[in-house]
């Protein structure tokens, strides 16, 4: 079973518009934008990973905090997609993240992300008890996304330590301080995105050379798979065995919705790892899942055949290692 943790779940709301008049130079009383189409679904990195895995037939349990009416909608969607849910309920309301996608500029979406509800100390206690219990049945645990208010910055580090003590492999699918704090604990798999923040584990990661050095440092600290996204179509894989450059040979104009593509990547890698693939083959499949997801309007591509087709578009080049 693959356990996923989403401490700050979201209701992802998408609007597709013909034109986005974002210039505020012309003062008007209001700006009305009519959406051609809209869609909403349960989200947050861990939840997206669970939804992908459930659709691939992998047993998965999604954990985290739910609140209010939005929490009910998120829960309903998670269950509908075949994942098992084991959330802690708190007061308030889960966040809604809005993405506006303009026709012809799909690779430059406009996003509005809410902060999410404050997590009380007692809810954290309840969560930790549930977490320890669920780990007994887990093979991997994915810690995904931003930390909500009330959660200390070293929380993922703590969750990695608890999981490692129980012999469960951990995946930290997060960025910024949460990832920086977790890396010294030696999670199995990390997926930083240097487009969000040009650093990995406290080291600068602006150039390719810096990215590789930062990845190698993470591997020295116990990380087995360090997969760093550095542009829309490119990732660098660093393991103890070597360094590889992965490139999606797909023009940006083919992309319809980039939200969730990195979650499809992580989920795809995990799916193939539990199926027994090598790390490199699993990463290739993950990258294909990300491309296939970005090429459709729904957040995640859940068609195995469509993903397998995209594997032809993933170019893998060894940069270092035997």
């Amino acid at each position: 079973m693959i356990l996923t943790v989403t401490l700050n779940p979201t209701l992802d709301k998408f609007y597709w518009v013909d034109h986005l008049p974002l210039s505020l130079e012309r003062v008007e009383e209001e700006i009305l934008i009519r959406a051609k189409k809209s869609d909403s679904s349960a989200g947050g990195k861990g939840i997206n990973v669970s939804i992908f895995l459930a659709c691939m037939g992998v047993e998965t349990v999604a954990m985290g905090f739910l609140a209010g009416h939005t929490g009910q909608i998120i829960l309903r969607d998670v269950l509908k997609r075949g994942a098992t849910a084991n959330f802690v309920w708190i007061e308030g309301e889960n966040r809604t993240n809005v993405t506006i996608i303009e026709r012809g500029k799909e690779y430059h979406p406009v996003k509005i992300h809410e902060e999410g509800p404050h997590i009380p100390e007692r809810a954290v206690e309840v969560f930790l008890r549930k977490y320890s219990r669920m780990l007994k049945r887990a093979e991997y645990v994915v810690l995904g996304g931003a930390l909500p208010p009330g959660i200390p910055v070293d929380f993922y580090r703590r969750l990695v330590r608890i999981a490692k003590d129980q012999g469960v492999r951990t995946v930290v699918h997060a960025g910024r301080d949460a990832l920086r704090e977790a890396i010294p604990e030696g999670p199995y798999f990390v997926k930083p995105d240097v487009r969000e923040e040009a650093e990995v584990g406290g080291l600068p990661a602006r150039t390719e050379e810096e990215i590789i050095q930062a990845g190698k440092r993470a591997v020295e600290q116990g990380v087995e798979i360090c997969l760093i996204s550095h542009h829309v179509t490119g990732d660098i894989l660093i393991t103890r065995e070597g360094v590889w450059d992965l490139e999606a040979r797909v023009p940006l104009t083919k992309y319809k919705n980039l939200v969730g593509a990195d979650d499809a990547l992580v989920a795809g890698v995990l799916y193939r790892l539990v199926e027994g693939d090598t790390v490199l083959d699993a990463v290739r499949f993950g990258m294909a899942a990300a491309i296939a997801s970005a090429e459709i309007e729904p957040k995640l591509c859940l068609s195995r055949s469509a993903i397998e087709l995209e594997m032809r578009e993933v170019e893998v080049r060894r940069k270092e290692g035997g």
Partner: peptide, 9 residues
């Protein structure tokens, strides 16, 4: 079944 493990101790 609903795969909802909401529970208490």
């Amino acid at each position: 079944m609903r795969r909802d493990l909401t529970s208490v101790e």
